[in-house]
Simulated scan of single mutants.
Amino acid sequence: MHVRPVELTQAPVRLVPLSLDHEDGLRAAAADGELWNLTFTSVPEPDDTRGYIERALAQQAAGNRLPFAVLDSASGRVLGSTSYHDIVADLDRLEIGYTWYAQSCWRTAINTTAKLLLMQHAFETLGAALVGWRTDILNLRSQAAIERLGAHREGVIRHDLRRRDGTVRDTVRYSLLASEWPAAKARLLVRLARA
C-alpha cells in the first residue's frame, strides 16, 4: 500500500492535500463555533493554525500521515480538515482521523461524503485491508458518526493520551475490514441519497 497526496471530490466536498495556503481558511473554519475550546478535538487555536499545518506536513514527510483540507466543492471555502494517519503500509492498514469541520457543517452531508471518499480510496485504490478510527471517550458526537459509517467498536484504551487541558483521555477504537466495506458503502450511499 503506497499512500501519496491525492485530490478526492464528490459534491458537496473536495479533499485536497493540506498546505500552508489553507492557513486562513482553517483559521476561519475553526472560528465557526470556536472549536478550539473543545478539549477532545484536534482543532487548532487561532494563533497555532500555521503550527498545526506544519506539524501535519512534518508527519506526512515522515510517512505516517496524509492530511487534507476539506473544501466546499462549489465555492472552494475551507470547511475543516481530515487525515489518513498511523499508516502501516506492510499491513495494508491506516486510520482516518484529525477530522474536524466548522460548526455550521455539523449535521450536513459534509462528514459522510468526506468519509465515503476516504474509505473508498483506501479500500478500492490503495488496497487497504483495514481502516481504523479512534476518538476520545467523551466525544459522543464523533463516536456516533463513526458508528454510522459501519465501523465496529473494538474497545477502549484506558488512560491513553493527554488532552489539551492536561487531563488524560480514554480512547475508543473502531475498525472496518475490507470484507465489510461493500455493505458499509451501500448503506452510506443510501444515506447520502436520502440527504
Rank of each mutant, 00 (worst) to 15 (best):
A61P: 10
V172T: 15
W181Y: 08
Y98V: 11
L176K: 04
G51D: 15
A28S: 04
A69R: 02
S179H: 08
D165N: 12
N37V: 10
A28P: 02
I110D: 01
T135S: 09
Y174T: 03
D48P: 01
R158D: 02
A102W: 06
P17L: 03
A58H: 08
T41F: 09
R164E: 12
D47L: 03
E23T: 10
V43S: 03
G132W: 08
Q10W: 02
H85I: 05
D90R: 15
A184K: 11
V78F: 12
Q103R: 14
A74Q: 14
T167F: 08
R169L: 13
L140T: 07
G80R: 13
A184Y: 14
A102D: 05
D48T: 15
L20A: 11
L116H: 08
G150C: 00
A89Y: 11
D21I: 00
H85L: 14
L118A: 04
E45D: 07
D136Y: 01
E23L: 09
G80A: 12
R27F: 00
V172C: 12
G63Q: 08
T39K: 14
S73G: 03
R164P: 12
V88S: 06
V3N: 08
L189R: 14
A31S: 14
D48V: 07
N37Y: 08
L8R: 00
V190T: 07
D72K: 07
E95C: 09
A193D: 13
L20Q: 12
Y101N: 12
T41E: 05
A11K: 05
R50N: 04
T49K: 09
R194A: 03
R164D: 12
R163S: 05
A122F: 03
I110R: 04
S19I: 05
D21M: 07
R55I: 14
A29G: 05
I137C: 10
F68Y: 05
D21E: 11
L188S: 07
W106D: 07
S142R: 11
L57P: 02
R173Y: 15
S142G: 09
S19C: 06
L66Y: 03
H121E: 01
A11D: 05
A128Q: 11
R191S: 14
A186K: 11
D136C: 07
P182Q: 13
R187L: 13
A109M: 01
L71H: 11
L94Q: 13
Q120G: 13
H152G: 05
L189H: 10
S83Y: 09
A74W: 11
P12T: 10
T41H: 06
I157M: 15
L15A: 06
Q120W: 02
A128K: 09
L91T: 14
Y52I: 02
R148S: 07
Q120S: 12
Q10P: 01
S75I: 08
E95A: 15
H152F: 05
T113F: 05
